[in-house]
Amino acid sequence: MSQEKKSVGLYGFTGCNGDQLVIIHSEDQLLPFFDSANIKSFSLAKSDNDNSELDLAFVEGSISSQEQAEHVKAIRERTRYLVAIGNCACYGGIQAMELGAKGWDQRFRKVYGDGFFINRTPIESKPIDVFVNVDFYLPGCPIDARQFFYCFAHFLQDDEPVFPDYPVCAECRWRENDCLLLKGELCLGPLTAAGCGARCPSHNLTCLGCWGPMKEANIGAEFNLLKEKDYSLEEIKRRFRMHTGSGMMKPLKKLLGAL
């Protein structure tokens, strides 16, 4: 299809830049990546970045200051599609672990004292969809390169990428691992969207939920199962909010409210 190249920008807010790093690390894809689109902004990879109109913006990281909030809104203004990449952008990440719990001011002061910030007004860290409309979520901590380039290729063709809605468990079974949940461990495999290829359970480590919940996550059933296995509410909550501040805690709170 002979169309004009699309304009694309990649942006990072609060986070480790790990998602952009995943892209830069995909050496075999970099040439076609830069070749197939006009990459207008990608500060981790190039220096001549501008603020021009975009077809597609990928945004990494959570929003943790007023200024970032303004910036992400400005990106939204000038792009057709906005894709949240990585767990921080999609769900707030580890820094949003206590999202919605009271006492952010105190916690903040405990760490940073009463000092002031230059050019920065800190706020509680939140996922980007609190501030702007997100067209597509590409979770992961960090994202999976294959999923990213699949998603990128689809948006270049104006197609919506489709990721099947099944949990890490499915990928884990395909790899013929021992089921850690059946062994009594606190594994979030059944709730977590697939995409990582069951990386942790394949190394005998439980799933921490870093891809966020799949659409149909049966939070109630997992919660009851973990209770049966004698995990305390505190242990379960700690694991639930670790990676997906808002992603899994919201439905869990709803469930606990109903109990």
């Binding site: 099944y166 059944p190 709730l191 049966n218």
Partner: peptide, 12 residues
């Protein structure tokens, strides 16, 4: 209510 829709039963 209980099913986790993980697909394990069909995979094995």
């Amino acid at each position: 209510e209980k099913c986790l829709s993980c697909g394990a039963c069909t995979i094995v």
